[in-house]
Design a protein around this nucleic acid. Sequence first.
DNA 1: TCTAGCATGTAAACAGTTACATGATTGC
DNA 2: GCAATCATGTAACTGTTTACATGCTAGA
Lengths: 186, 186
Amino acid sequence: MSLRHALLGLLVDRSASGYDLMKLFDTSLANVWPATQSQVYGELARLAENELIAVTAEGPRGRKEYSITGAGMNELRQWLATPAPIQPRRSDMLLRVFFLNVTSPEVARGYLEGRRQLAHEQHERLKQLEAAIDWEDGDLSVNGRLALEYGLRLSAMEEAWADWARDRIGGEPRPRSADATDASAT
Amino acid sequence: MSLRHALLGLLVDRSASGYDLMKLFDTSLANVWPATQSQVYGELARLAENELIAVTAEGPRGRKEYSITGAGMNELRQWLATPAPIQPRRSDMLLRVFFLNVTSPEVARGYLEGRRQLAHEQHERLKQLEAAIDWEDGDLSVNGRLALEYGLRLSAMEEAWADWARDRIGGEPRPRSADATDASAT
DNA sequence: TCTAGCATGTAAACAGTTACATGATTGC
DNA sequence: GCAATCATGTAACTGTTTACATGCTAGA
């Protein structure tokens, strides 16, 4: 139930409406904790009911601006002090890897090559993001920088891993160098 | 809906009951796609209904042994050929990092140090696993090796990142070297 | 005989996704 | 007047977790 903490965290810096928060999710938090509009509005209602946030202003079109309350800050601080649970990290991608032997070596290598490519693109995307952000506006960006660095390292690792894994799949070796030391393909 | 493909994949090698499959999930697939008993039994019933698997033997205690059908193999192969969707990777851990500025630098550093420690332990655990497994029994273990390598690289990356990130948190610097070039902590 | 392990299932609750539904306001 | 965007919400569905419920069988 971390969506609630994400919302509380965003409300620390500034008061905001559900609509504003949605935009923040789509920009700053998109890579870490994506959320849909339905979820945001639903959770905001629940948070207000529990008095962790409160409506502090109303605007046109039924706009409700929420602010974090003292109880909300306590909840957030407590959550931050809690060690993050070790996540089971379900991975669609690694699950497929597990069963790659069911297909031909060609398909398997193609799959891994595709992943390498995706990881590479993700890395490039993040590098661009890093270049685009103004790293001077303090607070959120300091931590955002840490999260971004994680993403950069992760995508670099994935690219290298996929490259390594692809070369490890048996069968017909890649175009270059035709010596197969370990060819144990089905 | 990858649970169904995980089950199909496991049934390629051998027929098994729900109980057997649960154990396989807890051992081989635990780090990639954990599943609960409820899920497994429910999904098996659905798979049988769709004739992707079939009961091929019955044993004591109402044991039902399932085998994959031709249709099931087709479904599995098709899924393997499908490019894995880019996962939004929700991370409880990185979400906390985003809001680390809400707490004191000491707490923040403590949090990151805890993560570094966890990553280190995970890395050690995987190294032990690697040493313990018999890498000769082919098929599943070939791919399992690829997945394990991913885990090893991931935990190594996380440890290095957490180390780097911890040193980047402002405020009072760590015990060693007392020069603070960039102290912008609130 | 009794315990550990085998074996299957159901129910309720929670989290997340997708689609639908509605309407107000601002700026061109 | 119209389009874009602001703004909020509901409903149905899927996937996951937790807890409950039941009973058999092999071996010590």
